[in-house]
Nucleic acid binder design. Sequence first.
DNA 1: CCGAAATATTTGACTTAAGCAACTATCTCG
DNA 2: CGAGATAGTTGCTTAAGTCAAATATTTCGG
Lengths: 162, 162
Amino acid sequence: MGDRVLPARIAAVRAFNRFYTRHIGVLRKDYLASPFSLTQARVLYELAHRRQPTASDLARDLDLDAGYLSRLLQAFEARGLIQRTRSSADGRQQHLVLTRRGRRSFAPLDARSQRDTAVMLRRLPPAGQARLIAAMRTIEALLSAERARAAVAGRPSRRSAR
Amino acid sequence: MGDRVLPARIAAVRAFNRFYTRHIGVLRKDYLASPFSLTQARVLYELAHRRQPTASDLARDLDLDAGYLSRLLQAFEARGLIQRTRSSADGRQQHLVLTRRGRRSFAPLDARSQRDTAVMLRRLPPAGQARLIAAMRTIEALLSAERARAAVAGRPSRRSAR
DNA sequence: CCGAAATATTTGACTTAAGCAACTATCTCG
DNA sequence: CGAGATAGTTGCTTAAGTCAAATATTTCGG
C-alpha cells in the first residue's frame, strides 16, 4: 500500500479544510444573536426536517454525546419547544416532535440563515452562484461516496465505528 | 434591493454547510488522539507556517478571543513549545516562534493529518481527486472574492466589524 | 511635548459545552 | 428464561470559550 497521492493534492485539501473551518466559524458567530447555540440550532433543524426522529437518530447523525443530547432535549421540553412520546413499538425510545411553539422559535433562526445565505449569494454573479453550487455538490458527492467506501472497507457489518 | 436569489440555490448552499460541518466534526474527532485540541492545533499550524506572527495576528485570523489565546500561548510557552519576544518596533506586541521542541511536537500531528488526508484521497480515483480539488479551489476563490467585496461594501476603512 | 484615545496583551471571574461512566428500563434472541 | 444489546438518564468532571477590567505602549492632534 504505497503513498501514491500527490503531496500537492493533500496540501490543497488541507488548505480547503482550514478555509472552511474559518468560514463555518464565521457563520457560527452569526448565530450568536439567537437564543440557541450552534448545536441547539442543528438539533432544531433536524427536528424541523424529519418525521419523529428518536434521540439516538439525532445523536448518530449530528455526532453528539447521548448524555449531552439528553439534557439538551430536556431543556427544550422544559421550554415547551418539543414533545416527547414513548414509542409504542420500542418502549426504550421516544419520538421527538417540535411543538407549534418550537416551530415558531425556530422559524426566525431558519429565516435568518436563509437570508444570510441569500445575501452571500447575491454578491456573486449568477454564473458564479451556479459554479459555487456545482462545486459544493461535487464535493458532497465525492466525499459521501468515499465515506461509504470507507465504511465497507472498515468492517463488513457494523453500524458505526464508535 | 429585491431577493433575486433562487431558493433552490440557498437550500443547496445550506445543505453543503451542514454537510461540511459534520465532515469537519469528524476530522475534529481524529485530532482527539493528540495532546492538542483542535484550536491548539490550529494555532500551532499558524505558528509553523508564518514568520513571527503576533498574538493579535492569530486572534484575528483564527477568530479567537484574545484572552483565551493569551492563556493558550502561556501554556505553550510553559511547555517550551514557543518563544515570545517583545517587538522592538512596538513594545506592546510580541513575536511568536515555535521552538525546536515546538516543531517536534507539531510534526506528528501534521504528519497524521497529512496521512489521513492521503488515505481519504486514495479512496478516490485520480480523476475524482482532481475534481474534488478543483471544486475546493472554486469554492475558495468564489467565497474569498465574495468576502472581499463584502468588506468593501461594509465600511470603507474599518479593520473589522467587531 | 502633553494628554486623550487606540491598541496589544494579561488576568480574574464566570458560563457553557462537552465527555465519560455508571445506572435504569426495555428489548432481542438463542 | 437469561445473557447480552440498546435507548435514554443522571452525576460528575474537565475543557472551551466569553467578558470585563486592568496594564503597558503607542499614536496623534493641538
